[in-house]
């Protein structure tokens, strides 16, 4: 498979009155064409900020992308002109957000908003754009799409609005769709519909997807590869099966242990991770998980571990003691 997007050492910080927030701390990974990558982590782990950084959508000030390269389609998105990045956004690289209601203009009809985008990006006539819009809305499973073009966003349900957002994202045949918690606000049965839709679209259109979520279950269902993020670092990366079945990082182990499992006795106590994530203001060097890690040693407090490959290929982990933990020595 051909590489589609490569991120090198991306660092994003926010300069607030309380101090410097180290939101993303040197994230590097790549994604191939047609691949689905899940990015999981809890609130404040930098998963959304890193996605916004890719598209240079970080509000500046207070945010600033400190360093890094984002290679997409032969260009470093962090250095191209403002005009060029605008062409990429919504064109080759589309983004869908958590709250579809706030990303749609409530005062304009849904049809008009998509038609406008098409005419802007693809230079279509009004008629062509309308036809394409109907086609797109049908593709994402909106029944009777033709007659719904003149409806306003509030006339759609939450799930349908998210479909509209996805249709908008698809409008210019993107090679990569970045979806930031697109199903978090939705009910499980509606979430299942959207996940199903994304799977179908990926198979039909061959686009790659970066799916950002806190829900490990959705990642297990949808993604091929996964990044586990914590305090602005990727702490574990690999094929979904490797990460979920041969889990190496103590944080991922803890996260999976926090979830009730269908195959265990419901009476057993959940193995919760004690404490809570570190404050990202003036984050100290050292492993960010050390304070909550049952295996932390002196080294973990002082040196930041880098991602290194585990025994299987394409599975990396940022932990000083992963080998000992895997062997049960630690």
């Amino acid at each position: 498979m051909k590489e589609l997007l490569r991120i090198e050492d991306l660092q994003t910080r926010f300069y607030t009155r309380d101090g410097v927030v180290h939101a993303v701390n040197g994230v590097s990974y790549s994604i191939d064409e047609g691949e689905i990558l899940g990015v999981v982590g809890e609130s404040g782990c930098g998963k959304s900020v890193h996605a916004l950084s890719i598209l240079r959508l970080i509000p500046d000030p207070p945010g600033r992308i400190e360093s890094g390269e984002v290679w997409f389609d032969g260009k470093d998105l962090l250095t191209v002109s403002d005009e060029e990045i605008r062409r990429v956004r919504g064109g080759q690289l589309a983004m869908v957000f958590q709250d579809p209601m706030s990303s749609l203009n409530p005062a304009m009809t849904v049809g008009f908003q998509i038609v406008e985008a098409l005419r802007l990006h693809l230079d279509m006539t009004e008629r062509q754009a309308k036809e394409r819009t109907t086609e797109l809305l049908t593709t994402v499973g909106i029944p009777d799409a033709k007659n719904r073009l003149d409806d306003y966003p509030h006339q759609f349900s939450g799930g349908m609005r998210q479909r509209v957002m996805i249709a908008m994202g698809l409008s210019c045949n993107p090679k990569l769709l970045i979806a930031d918690e697109p199903t978090t606000a939705l009910d499980v049965t509606i979430q299942a519909q959207i996940v199903d839709l994304i799977k179908r679209l990926q198979a039909e259109l061959g686009m790659a997807v970066i799916w950002i979520t806190h829900d490990l279950g959705v990642v297990a269902d949808l993604a091929e590869k996964v990044n586990v993020m914590y305090a602005g670092y990727i702490v574990e990366h690999g094929n979904v099966r490797d990460v979920f079945k041969r889990t190496r990082h103590p944080y991922t182990i803890g996260l999976l242990g926090s979830l009730p499992r269908l195959d265990e006795d419901p009476g057993t106590e959940l193995s919760a991770i004690p404490g809570f994530p570190p404050d990202l203001i003036d984050l100290k060097p050292g492993c960010p998980f050390a304070a909550r890690c049952p295996h932390a040693i002196e080294q973990c407090w002082n040196e930041t571990p880098r991602l290194e490959p585990t025994e299987t290929k394409r599975h990396t982990v940022a932990c000083w003691r992963w080998e000992e933990i895997a062997q049960g020595v630690a």
Partner: peptide, 22 residues
């Protein structure tokens, strides 16, 4: 188990950043 759980939570809190700042 439950007793020690509460303890670890407390110690986790003591190390947190909010604590330092406040």
């Amino acid at each position: 188990m439950s007793g020690s759980l509460a303890e670890t939570e407390l110690s986790g809190f003591a190390r947190s950043g909010t604590e330092d700042r406040s």
